[in-house]
Design a protein around this nucleic acid. Sequence first.
DNA 1: ATTCTATTTAGCAAATTAGCTAATTAACTT
DNA 2: AAGTTAATTAGCTAATTTGCTAAATAGAAT
Lengths: 122, 122
Amino acid sequence: MLNMEDKIKIFKALGNKTRFKIFKNIFTGGYACSIDDTQPEDDIIAQATCVTSIAEQFNFALPTISRHLKEMKDAKIIRMTKIKNKIYIEPNIETMKEIAECFNTLVKKYESGVVYQYDNTK
Amino acid sequence: MLNMEDKIKIFKALGNKTRFKIFKNIFTGGYACSIDDTQPEDDIIAQATCVTSIAEQFNFALPTISRHLKEMKDAKIIRMTKIKNKIYIEPNIETMKEIAECFNTLVKKYESGVVYQYDNTK
DNA sequence: ATTCTATTTAGCAAATTAGCTAATTAACTT
DNA sequence: AAGTTAATTAGCTAATTTGCTAAATAGAAT
């Protein structure tokens, strides 16, 4: 369960253009990066990419992207798994589910008419 | 429809403790603030509050809260309506619906198995 | 017309963030 | 064990953010 601090961290992580683009790319899958380049059909992690291949998509130095990824990992919106000497990056779907649930609950509350909204068109 | 810049603005607005708390209070309804104090049953806007009453909940100066609210309004997560000389603040549910939809789509995409997730437990 | 209430704007200081390069660490390959 | 590849850490600067107080504006009430 995400507490307030967790949620703030998530929104902060997504509230920056560079990180949002990284997030978008990781989640919409702009990459293909296998564990074993000689056998790409084996053990491929769709979406999951290494730091370098993500950095290549941006006009920023590698350490800059590395720091952004660390922040996203700390916010639990991505997971980073070291395999051999590469780090594979993938979406953290559990967190996304929780965030989705938060907004759904919020909307549902208003849909159910619990709260009256002011009509500022009149 | 929210474009990328819109979404980043929304997440930035929510990625700060003070603003998140304001948001939380506005959305979960910690206030009751009528247009006409002598007739609270008439024209009451549930949830909607004025800047001062929100500021009272925080240990920050009024202009600080005012600036935070402006940022939240610019991000379209709240609406501010001037009535007489007070400004009433209320959640912007349309935006919340759109954000909820974004996360739902994201989650659905993964639920439907379009993307394989790496099992880092093995 | 003056005063009061509600809010914003301006201008400032401190803290944080986001970028960089250079150096370091970790792990594989030869 | 030396070299190569992948990524992080350290230390720096510039830009942005977040707070403040004082002053200004807008509207209502006296």
